[in-house]
């Protein structure tokens, strides 16, 4: 049984125009994202995965269609049942919306070089929470959870390893307890060990109720999802529900788990059927 819908995209289209050439990246796409789900978007290169993610997250506006969030919004005094349609928001309004309801992790961490790891997390937090002391406590706890100790948290990004940097970026993404965490190939620039670490953190967050929408092209990352959506040529080809295997996934540490093996097989079959 599915949870409540947290995000609904209806008839989304996105067209990029470059001089006389027009490229229709998303074509009349509709999608619902459910609260607490770990939604994974897959597809070949150029299928529109990242474009969909940016549109859903409010980082970019669709050319056509609507995106409605079903969340409580204190600043507007709206209840989640009413829904907030963001596709026509101005840039500033979208920024305000993102700071309150969305978190981000990208392939590149885009940490600010001139600030310490802790400050990078705090910048994001301070946008919403003005209680600096409480926020610093929360940031430190979250950083410790991803194994960034206090000493490392004072370091500048350049002094941290790639894996550490990406973990800081994940903490930055969730510091404001967003309704949805959007991740665009979050492990794309990491080695195997760091990839596992970051995926573990995402899975752990999801098990605590964090809704996640992640774009990936690796099987290893996709296995963490509870729902896989496959995009082809700007439309959803099909989707695969892995909800029944929640919490069990195949990785280096528990390769023999039965549930994990089944989950792995189901996903593999689905992707093969999609021509992946």
């Amino acid at each position: 049984m599915r949870n409540d819908v947290i995000l609904k995209a209806k008839d989304l289209s996105k067209t990029f125009s470059n001089e006389s050439v027009q490229q229709h990246v998303l074509k009349n796409l509709s999608l619902e994202v459910y609260k607490g789900d770990f939604t994974v978007v897959m597809g070949n290169s150029g299928s529109g995965k990242s474009t969909l993610l940016y549109a859903l997250s409010g980082m970019d506006r669709p050319t056509l269609g609507t995106i409605t969030y079903y969340v409580d919004d204190d600043s507007k005094g709206t209840k989640k049942e009413e829904g907030i349609e963001i596709s026509k928001f101005s840039n500033d309004k979208l920024a305000m919306f993102r700071r309150n309801h969305a978190g981000f992790v990208f392939q590149q961490n885009y940490l600010n070089d001139s600030m310490s790891a802790l400050d990078n997390v705090m910048v994001s937090g301070l946008l919403r929470n003005k209680d600096r002391k409480a926020l610093a406590e929360k940031a430190k706890k979250l950083l410790e959870r991803v194994e960034i100790n206090e000493r490392d948290s004072k370091k500048f990004p350049a002094q941290l390893s790639g894996g550490q940097q990406q973990r800081v970026a994940v903490v930055r993404g969730v510091i404001n307890s967003p309704e949805v965490l959007f991740a665009d190939e979050p492990t794309g620039a990491l080695n195997s060990q760091n990839t596992t670490n970051v995926l573990d953190i995402l899975s752990e967050l999801n098990s605590e109720g964090q809704s996640i929408v992640m774009v990936t092209h690796t099987l290893k990352a996709a296995e963490r999802g509870s729902r896989i959506i496959y995009l082809a040529d700007g439309v959803i080809s099909d989707e695969c529900d892995l909800g029944e295997y929640a919490g069990d996934y195949q990785d280096d540490e528990n390769p023999d788990k039965e549930k994990a093996r089944k989950r792995h097989e189901k996903l593999k079959d689905f992707l093969q059927a999609m021509g992946w």
Partner: peptide, 16 residues
């Protein structure tokens, strides 16, 4: 540019 873009993604407005 990219850091600024990230800050925008995090919810800082262009004005900020």
């Amino acid at each position: 540019r990219k850091e600024a873009g990230m800050l925008k993604a995090l919810g800082l407005s262009g004005k900020d």
